[in-house]
Design a protein around this nucleic acid. Structure first.
Lengths: 309, 309
DNA sequence: TTCCATTACGGGGCACGTAATAATT
DNA sequence: AATTATTACGTGCCCCGTAATGGAA
């Protein structure tokens, strides 16, 4: 039993039970993977992969449990290197953050400026993506932490803690009829073409839902991936925009746009900070989160020196 | 980086920072340990052990974190074998239980008889010891689970769940004056020589405490490790015995002894079931606990396939 | 003097690569 | 025909053991 065998198993699974692709990804010859997996199976006396003569079909039940443990061991091996770097070069390293457009554009620039001033030897990388992509990157270890709304689906290997609650606001051109209403309603809103987030995105779906449960079927004239595109189309008069108050604080009036609070019409938009479970968290990562949100509860991100329950 | 290096580190620490003893325990030559640790230190770029020329003094800060991770990896390596056995030979294996005299003698025989009938291919071993020894054995992996009162000190690597609550009873010879009292009091008890558990044992200390907080200093005529010895001395008239109601159910009157309920005089005696954290728990171990206590809450012993928080 | 960690040196096993083979799509 | 897993075979590296060295107790 050795670490490479764990790598081979893990990578083979990651590449859809394909040994050849795993070998290519790891830079070794195909027979190596095949042989090492067989050796491990013989040593443990159990079949990890279900085969049909010359093709791997799936993981066995035992294989699933073994793969989970193998992944954790690889995690720990990685942690060993991280720990060493933490003690030999405390404030040097790389910090990869994945986040959505709105945070990358509006919230994080000033945070990163402050942080980089305090930790000049930390190379910060920012990746902008959708919440689901972000979760995948986090799982794969390509980024260290995420700031986004809760991704869809279950992510047993990730930990999320609430960070901030965003509300919805309506963007309209100046002198729009909706500005004259005392109380904004979904009915009134549904009279106009809607400009909002993509179908399938956390933002877009929750807005669609709100209309549907009210029995309304507004026309969506433009569906975009980010708030700035939405703004542009609202300015062009293609409809009323529905965005979050992060992108456009209510007090600001830019480019002739007016904002109307719509917190009462749509569910709150919960933003969470995510990290991989079992990961050794370097001090400078904590410090970054302290820059993002000084009051964040970081206890669930505690260093994973203790053994799992 | 390989598993043996983790073993060498772990074993060296376990033997008080002594490489020679670790080598002997692992059955390898001394230079192997020395060299492999140095190789790992070079690879990680960090010193794990603090040395003074030719002697190892202590673990470095980094070493502590590394050792904890190393231990977890070894745990996982062991889990791999356990998982494999679980799937290849579901109801075969060994089950080592550590427990105190009272349970070994009075509670477990019937449990083990039932269990062995259901799982004839499981080799059950029972180890009788004090709670502290039991905890040490559990930590060292020499036993799979424990049944005892809560051991003293902290055991971060162990999980305990409450199992049963025992009460204290007084044992006296027939026609003893205490039998005539309507309500037993500590004062009355302190008039007679006491026969009870060793000083230092969980049982003995809690009894001593109860007298002390009442300002009483009874004479302890005999202090023994188990209830049967206590019974024998009470029968010989050397004093009144204080034991738990597991050893001598109140209804039974054996050897001319009489029992008096003393639950109101001494604190309850909490019995817990213990297991090592991060251990893969085989099904037959769960089934044993189900035989011991069908209603036990086993959720905190869940299989550790998931990654630690 | 004894114990203990480290350095030096030689051997064997094992993990790897290349090449060939067999089964699947 | 192309892709993919497995078997066969030769090689180099790495880990180990023995022996020797140098500090510490």
């Amino acid at each position: 039993m050795n670490f490479n065998q764990m790598r081979y198993i893990s990578e083979t699974i990651a590449h859809g039970m394909n040994i050849s692709r795993a070998a290519a990804a790891l830079g070794v010859a195909q027979p190596v993977i095949s042989r090492q997996i067989q050796l491990l199976e013989k040593e443990l006396g159990v079949t990890i992969f279900i085969r049909s003569k010359k093709r791997i079909l799936d993981l066995s039940e035992a294989g699933k449990a073994i793969a989970a443990t193998a992944r954790r061991m690889l995690n720990d091996a990685e942690a060993l290197r991280t720990i060493s770097a933490e003690y030999s070069k405390p404030n040097e390293g790389e910090l990869a953050v994945a986040t959505t457009y709105a945070h990358a554009r509006y919230a994080l620039p000033r945070v990163i400026r402050r942080y980089s001033a305090r930790f000049p030897s930390i190379k910060v990388s920012l990746f902008e993506a959708t919440p689901d992509e972000i979760a995948a990157w986090l799982s794969a270890g390509r980024v260290d932490l995420s700031i986004s709304s809760m991704p869809a689906g279950t992510h047993d290997d990730l930990t999320f803690v609430p960070y901030e609650t965003l509300h919805r606001i309506i963007l309209v051109p100046a002198r729009h009829p909706l500005l004259k209403l005392k109380v904004l309603t979904l009915d009134a809103l549904a009279q106009y073409p809607i400009v909002t987030f993509h179908h399938g995105s956390a933002g877009g779906d929750s807005i669609e839902n709100a209309f549907r449960v009210s029995g309304l079927t507004p026309r969506y004239s433009v569906r975009a991936a980010n708030a700035d595109v939405i703004k542009a189309y609202v300015q062009m008069g293609l409809g009323v925009g529905i965005v979050s108050d992060l992108a456009t604080p209510l007090s600001r009036r830019e480019g002739g746009l007016r904002a109307i609070d719509a917190a009462h019409l749509f569910p709150d938009h919960e933003i969470v900070v995510g990290m991989r479970k079992g990961q050794y968290v370097r001090n400078y990562v904590y410090e970054f989160l302290r820059c993002v949100a000084p009051k964040l509860d970081l206890t669930s991100f505690k260093k994973s020196s203790a053994v799992a329950t």
